[in-house]
């Protein structure tokens, strides 16, 4: 994968995450709002880092679109958590692509970003996937092992 392609996809995912957390934070209260605000700031920091990297490589970072279509506009705490977990999963998947970059520094950054997304998701919903970011395994073949996903 070309580094600029992977970075562009990661930046697009971070733009979307910042937008989503802006909506989620505005519709949350109490401790949940604090967590969502922390997540919003973390994604903003990664977004800014990606923008800077793209510029350093001679590229032009894409601006966010005006509006992102969210699967749900959260009106309850449970919906807010659902949406936040979905956001983290999508961003994790995008960074997974970047871990295959020819640029080893990008790989390392993406691997660490994945760890951040997954731990942030865990704080919201204590579930752990054996292979975060990976597409679901195809139908089990004889001899294949299960990939457990369980709440702790």
């Amino acid at each position: 994968m070309r580094a600029d392609q992977g970075l562009g996809a990661a930046l697009a995912a971070e733009h979307a995450a910042v937008y989503a957390y802006g909506v989620i934070g505005a519709r949350s209260t109490g401790r949940l709002r604090t967590e969502m605000t922390a997540a919003y700031n973390a994604h903003r920091a990664r977004r800014d880092q990606l923008r800077a990297m793209i510029i350093k490589m001679g590229g032009t970072p894409a601006e966010p679109t005006a509006v992102y279509e969210l699967p749900v506009t959260p009106s309850t705490a449970a919906q807010a958590v659902d949406l936040a977990v979905l956001v983290e999963r999508r961003v994790t998947g995008t960074y997974l692509e970047l871990t295959a970059s020819a640029d080893t520094a990008l790989r390392k950054m993406a691997a660490l970003a994945m760890q951040e997304c997954v731990t942030r998701s865990y704080t919201l919903r204590p579930e752990i996937d054996a292979f975060p970011g990976m597409p679901p395994a195809p139908a089990a073949s004889p001899g294949s092992s299960p990939t457990p996903t369980a709440g702790e």
Binding site: K108, T119, M134
Partner: peptide
Amino acid sequence: QVEGASPPLAQLIASIGACEAAHALA
């Protein structure tokens, strides 16, 4: 470890690392 692996193995290692980070937090 992702730095020295082939792209497919780097992805697997990164995914495993994310799982381990969640384990550590849990």
